[in-house]
Design a protein around this nucleic acid. Structure first.
Length: 591
DNA sequence: ATAGGGTTAG
């Protein structure tokens, strides 16, 4: 081992593998401390600039737990870093959440004219994803194509995830379709991409395709799939997934468990969600928050409070999201005193800064409960200009409690902040309608038509026999449209016999003339319910999901339908669940 | 001689 005696020369790889230092590195393995000890010995013996030794150290540091600063140090101890050294640094900084730094090294590598490999590309793309830097990611995609790595599975998987996460699902799908061999990871990226962008149905469709092609799903697949089920209310598939993972002995880890809690509570089954929660061995703050929010969604404010206080005693520390969950639970259950206290503790006990969402919860909570002045004062006490969402909550409260003057004032202020938001015009027009100012209603509506402002289209979905059906208002696309409409008409006339009076106010939800005609009778949730009643046997609960909030007219009508058809009906609207049974709703008409 | 891609909550 003569070559080990001069610090100027670098040992060759052949002699290196027999050297004691090399063996020391191997023995140290991926544990950072022993690695650093060996490194110290390397420095002391004068081989600090030996590329093979440093490279070997790096390759082990890669597997260690928090090696970023150490890797930086190693990297800068070598004079002319090569592709591998750059790769290690770029990948590590990317993996341990220093995306900006990672891209900086990527640029430095390009400037030094060192060619990048497929390894480097996937890391750089991941960094762009984490930074939400769309144009950087696109540029790197170009580099990939120029360098001929366009068909590398790892690079492609990173690209799929990049495009999906930056909201370009269709491009993601294009890259995905081009993959000659699709790994589970690629399938997972695409399924999660659909789900995250609100295309739950497509996520589920892709999962079925994956099944047909015989690709074996793993636990990540199920996490995304369960979120998709939660999103579209596919309780049938959700339960199937639960059975499948139990049968195939999947480990019920925190992530999977939380996905199940979320799926069950958003599909209407809170008690099942709680069962999972109790079964989970490890519960982090996300799991607790999911359970609290599940209770909140169902209007079970007291259970949410109970769980929250249990968590304060023996659970993890609540974060900002937890507070949104518990505050909105209080808002939906009318637990104003508890809500006030919790809001105070957010700052005083936990040192958190109230976010816009917390403010919205508070205004919503106070406003619903009729404390309009307190809600207004709360807004005035917000240091900077309150966010539009806060004013929107205030406006909702004004409408709910028919406070015409304040409502108009708030609506006009909102319109000055967001003149393009159709929701505000609809709200203002509704308030005018409540006050009988039909001239103003017409005026607002004309502004909307002139500016081509259309309200988000409402739709409802229902899961029958593990298939999700979608209905929009006045929908006639279903093959059994005739039967559905006939049956719905019959239902509605029986509702009227039972004392139901269609509310005229709700008609204002629709703007266009032709829409208004059918608006009341054919709101999407009514269509979906009629379909559900036709398609399922007596005693089977009907479960509907609606993208917007339910209007008061539908709420009243469905209460009647639950009696006439003698059926339990659950509707999840944008905010919460309504369980209709025997002519009343679980929300107690408070929503 | 060396190494990598996907994951949950309102």
């Amino acid at each position: 081992m003569a070559s080990f005696h001069g610090s100027q020369t670098t040992p060759s790889t052949a002699t290196l593998t027999h050297s004691p230092i090399y063996h020391a590195i191997i023995q140290a393995g991926p544990r950072l401390k022993p690695l650093q000890q060996v490194h110290a010995r390397i420095l002391v013996t004068g081989y600090g600039r030996s590329r093979p030794l440093i490279t070997k150290l790096l390759s082990f540091a890669y597997a260690a737990t928090s090696p970023v600063s150490y890797t930086r140090h190693l990297f800068f101890s070598i004079p002319k870093p090569d592709t591998f050294l750059f790769h290690s640094l770029i990948t590590l900084t990317s993996k341990f959440n220093f995306p900006r730094e990672s891209l900086l090294y990527y640029r430095r590598m390009l400037l030094a004219n060192i060619s990048s490999s497929n390894y480097t590309f996937s890391a750089a793309i991941k960094s762009s994803t984490d930074l939400m830097a769309f144009s950087i990611g696109e540029t790197i995609h170009c580099h990939v194509l120029i360098c001929g790595y366009g068909l590398d599975v790892y690079v492609q998987a990173a690209l799929v995830s990049f495009y999906a996460k930056s909201g370009h699902v269709r491009i993601a799908r294009k890259v995905f379709d081009k993959m000659p061999e699709k790994t589970v990871v690629a399938w997972n990226s695409m399924i999660s991409g659909y789900e995250q962008n609100g295309f739950g149905k497509e996520a589920i469709g892709l999962f079925y395709l994956m099944q047909d092609l015989g690709v074996k799903p793993d636990s990540s697949t199920f996490v995304s799939l369960l979120s998709a089920c939660a999103q579209v209310g596919a309780s049938g598939l959700g339960c199937w997934v639960h059975e499948y993972i139990a049968r195939n002995c999947f480990d019920l880890n925190v992530v999977l468990g939380t996905a199940l809690i979320n799926m069950y509570s958003r599909c209407g089954n809170v008690s099942k969600a709680r069962e999972i929660f109790d079964l989970m061995e490890e519960k982090n703050i996300v799991a607790w928050t999911a359970m609290i929010s599940g209770y909140g969604m169902h209007g079970h404010g007291n259970q949410a409070l109970e769980l929250f206080s249990e968590m304060r005693v023996r659970g993890p520390r609540p974060n900002s999201v937890t507070f949104v969950a518990i505050l909105s639970a209080c808002a939906h259950a009318g637990l104003v005193d508890d809500g006030r206290q919790i809001f105070a503790s957010l700052r005083q006990e936990y040192g958190l800064v109230p976010s816009v969402e917390h403010q919205v919860c508070m205004v919503d909570m106070l406003g619903r409960a009729g404390h309009l002045n307190e809600a207004y004062q709360f807004i005035k006490d917000i240091p900077k200009e309150p966010a539009p969402a806060v004013w929107t909550a205030m406006l909702g409260a004004c409408k709910m409690h028919k406070n015409f003057d304040l409502g108009v004032e708030v609506a006009e202020h909102l319109l000055s902040l967001e003149p393009e938001n159709p929701g505000h015009y609809v709200m203002l027009s509704n308030i005018y309608a409540l006050a009988g100012r039909m001239d103003r209603v017409e005026k607002v509506r004309n502004i909307m038509i002139r500016n081509r402002l259309k309200k988000e289209v409402g739709y409802s979905t229902i899961d029958v026999d593990q298939k999700v059906y979608l209905f929009s208002m006045g929908d006639k696309s279903h093959p059994e449209t005739n039967q559905i409409y006939l049956y719905l008409d019959e239902l509605m006339s029986r509702c009227r016999e039972a004392g139901y009076i269609p509310a005229s106010e709700s008609v204002m939800h629709e703007v266009e003339e032709e829409e208004r005609e059918h608006a009341l009778r054919y709101h999407s949730e009514k269509l979906a319910i009629a379909f559900g009643l036709l398609k399922t046997g007596p005693g089977v609960p009907i479960r509907i999901i609606k993208n917007l909030r339910m209007c008061e007219d539908c709420h009243t009508a469905i209460k009647h339908i639950s009696v006439i058809a003698d059926r339990e009906i659950n509707v999840r609207d944008r905010l919460r669940f309504h369980h209709f049974k025997d002519g009343s709703c679980s929300c107690g008409d408070y929503w």
